[in-house]
Write a protein that binds this DNA or RNA. Structure first.
Lengths: 129, 129
DNA sequence: GTCCCTGCAAATCCTTTGCACTCCT
DNA sequence: AGGAGTGCAAAGGATTTGCAGGGAC
């Protein structure tokens, strides 16, 4: 286990991620932090986001298109992804513990996280068509 | 809506995907088809896999690391992903219709598919450590 | 003949990495 | 001092795309 040292950048990245509910990409976070700290680099943002994920302080979401997104909300919850506009939102839906237990009992291994994505067309995009 | 024309390559790709239960990457499929048809190109494989996904005849799975994987099994089911060895397996677990209905009622839009991933360490990798 | 599809290679997108330097501790 | 973290730019992996030729209809 390697020892962590404080870093201003990591602190910013963490705060930025925790302060938003919109599942930003690494680039979103980079651009946002750049406003106050024009010297931060995208590589640092990626490095620290991955570190946070490794430490279990954030999650990475992948949908099969576009860049990955990050989520600082660790409470178990589900996501809705709009195929039209790419928006990602949380579903106010209690995740089923039962599901985790069932999965646990039939996968034979150890489960340490669970992500569920619903894909479709969001309210706004439905209206547009 | 554009008209589809028959293509031997697409046929092969589809057959190859449907014939396996192992969630291959585009490259796996490419290599497999190459054995009988050494002239097929990786671009064609990607093009057709994406087309199949668009037509609803296959699904794309993304895990946040490594290349995307494809699944020709359209019946709703869940996946278990091993973080150690990267293996992906289906969980013999009845997906909950209820979940879809709940999600449908709270996302405000239209849901047309649903993917659930359980991440952890598989049986084999647990043994190794 | 028309237009879709292919192979090929180059381009693109996203992400990671090597290196010299800086900042914690 | 030591070593973890940074910025920068180049590399890397995965996927897409432009184009000229080939095949389906």
């Amino acid at each position: 286990m390697k020892t962590l040292k404080y870093s201003r950048q990591r602190e910013c990245i963490k705060n930025c991620l925790m302060g938003r509910r919109d599942h930003p990409t690494a680039d979103h976070i980079y651009l946002s932090i750049r406003e106050n700290d024009p010297n931060i680099s995208l590589g640092t943002v990626y490095r620290n986001l991955n570190l946070l994920v490794e430490l279990g302080e954030a999650r990475k979401l992948s949908f099969g298109y576009g860049p990955d997104r990050f989520d600082g909300d660790l409470t178990p919850h589900y996501h809705f992804v709009c195929r039209e506009c790419g928006s990602v939102s949380d579903l106010p839906l209690k995740p089923s513990d039962q599901l985790n237990h069932l999965a646990q009992s039939c996968c034979g291994g150890r489960i340490d996280s669970h992500l569920t994505y619903f894909y479709g067309v969001c309210q706004d995009c439905l209206k547009k068509v």
